[in-house]
Every structure is written in structure tokens, then in C-alpha cells.
């Protein structure tokens, strides 16, 4: 087998309410069966960094698709579509119910591939981290979830230009899969106290979760094309992600 051979392309699949939405897919070219991963992009949209991470999952032996969560604001260049979505605010551009429907559609699409091993996880960054947390509670067809610095999991007060948010922590009793959380201790949303509180709620509910927290890192410390990137913490973080997913989706010890 040619190591690291992969195929990457834009695809369409049915999302929420069977709307066909676009997504970016990468999968290993291999005769082995592989698990699937649904990747939830950060607020700037399905940008080059997000697509690079999709391809990375393929090199690690996962078929990965990133649904374009702003798709319905199009058609147009992804950056213009994302700009229109962001200006409308999070709740209007990516309503929870719609995003959960798109994630369920992406998971079904991955599971229908001939190479699927039947397992599918979800990982999200920034706003996608909160969506991954919610998916762990709302999309029971998934098998594992990774929340990377998801903000506003807890209720948030209103600020100028942004309405108040009730958060998604109230759905935690429905969490039906293991959750891995990665957080930078210098982040302000979620800050240390908020991560403590989320962990406390999950522990109290007896939900399987593991939080890895890094000193010297803030928000989005995996993002290689911005100053917030933190090499040492990101390298360890990626090891944690693949250790967790290899165990939950590939059955590795």
C-alpha cells in the first residue's frame, strides 16, 4: 500500500431536512476499512486551514468530511459566503438544529462509503467545538466527540452587537458518547473557570469525558497560519486527539 495516498475533493450529501450541502472530503486510498470523522470548521469558515486538517485526518487513516456549515448563505466563494453568515450572527447563520441535521447527514454519508468500518466521530474547533459538544448530546449515531476550545457551552450574557446565549450545557444529560476536550489555559472563552464548570457538570452526570488543558496556550492554538499557534501544545494535542480516536473508533488499546 502506498503510505499517505489520499483522495480529497468537494462533495455533496444530504444534510438537515435533506438539503444537499457541500462538504470537503479526504479519505485514504486503501483497501482497509476505516472510521469516519465529521470536522466542524471554525467561525472564519471552511478555510484552507480547515481543509488542511481534513486531509491530515485522511493521512491518519480516517475518512473525513467537513460540511460547509454556512452553505445555505451561498452560492459564492466560501469566504464571501462565510462573511455573510458571520455578519448575521451565530444563531442565524448556524442554528443548532440545522447544524445537528448537517452533522447527522455527514455521518450517514461517511457510514455509507464502501470503506467504512461503521464508526464515525466528530471534531470541532472554536464555534465548531461547541457544536461538537452539542452533537455528543444530540446526534446519537456518532461514536465519539472532540471539542477543541468550544466557547459558549455555558450560558453567555448579551454584549453590544451580540445577543445573550443559553449555551448547550443543559443538554449534557443526553450525552451518549465519550468526549475529549482540549483547552488553552489563557483562553477567555472558555476561560479556566468555565472549563472547570463544564467538567464538573459532566462528572456529576457520570459522563465519560477527558479534558486536556495546556499552559502557555490560548484559543485556537492548533491554527498554524495565525500567531496563536503553539507548537509544543499543538503537537501534544494532536497526539491526544488520535490516541482518543484510535481507541474509540478503531478499537486500539
Amino acid at each position: 500500500m502506498l503510505k499517505d495516498a489520499l483522495l480529497a475533493e468537494f462533495v455533496g450529501f444530504p444534510g438537515h431536512r435533506s438539503d444537499v450541502i457541500e462538504g470537503y472530503l479526504a479519505r485514504p486510498v486503501s483497501e482497509s476499512s476505516v472510521p469516519g470523522m465529521v470536522l466542524l470548521h471554525h467561525a472564519p469558515g471552511l478555510d484552507p486551514w480547515s481543509r488542511e486538517v481534513v486531509r491530515r485526518f485522511a493521512t491518519e487513516g480516517y475518512a473525513c468530511v467537513a460540511p460547509h456549515l454556512y452553505h445555505r448563505r451561498g452560492p459564492g466563494h466560501w469566504a464571501d459566503v462565510a462573511a455573510a453568515g458571520r455578519a448575521a450572527g451565530l444563531a442565524a447563520s448556524m442554528p443548532n438544529e440545522q447544524v445537528m441535521g448537517d452533522i447527522a447527514g455527514a455521518a450517514a454519508y461517511l457510514r455509507a462509503q464502501p470503506s467504512s468500518n461503521g464508526k464515525v466521530g466528530v471534531i470541532g474547533f472554536c464555534s465548531g467545538g461547541r457544536q461538537a459538544f452539542l452533537a455528543a448530546c444530540d446526534v446519537p449515531t456518532l461514536d465519539a466527540a472532540v471539542d477543541c476550545w468550544g466557547g459558549s457551552v455555558l450560558p453567555q450574557p448579551a454584549a453590544e452587537g451580540r445577543p445573550a446565549s443559553v449555551g448547550v450545557i443543559g443538554r449534557a444529560p443526553d450525552m451518549s458518547m465519550p468526549l475529549l476536550g482540549l483547552f488553552g489555559n489563557d483562553d477567555s472563552n472558555p476561560d479556566r473557570a468555565q472549563v472547570d464548570e463544564i467538567g464538573r457538570v459532566l462528572t456529576e452526570l457520570g459522563k465519560e469525558h477527558e479534558f486536556v488543558r495546556y499552559d502557555g496556550a490560548g484559543h485556537a492554538f492548533f491554527v498554524t497560519d495565525k500567531p496563536v499557534y503553539r507548537l509544543e501544545q499543538a503537537l501534544d494535542g494532536w497526539q491526544q486527539v488520535f490516541r482518543f480516536l484510535d481507541r474509540t473508533l478503531k478499537g486500539a488499546e
Binding site: A43, P44, R86, K226
Partner: peptide
């Protein structure tokens, strides 16, 4: 539209975004 948030292309963690 005016935002202060993560930019798409400018090499900053946050920037002033004008559309």
C-alpha cells in the same frame, strides 16, 4: 458590516473586519 473577530487572511488572531 464591521466586526472585531478572527480574520480569514490577515495574519492576526483577531482583526478589524470591514465588509
Amino acid at each position: 458590516n464591521v466586526m472585531y473577530d478572527h480574520p480569514v487572511s490577515a495574519p492576526y488572531d483577531h482583526a478589524l473586519l470591514l465588509d
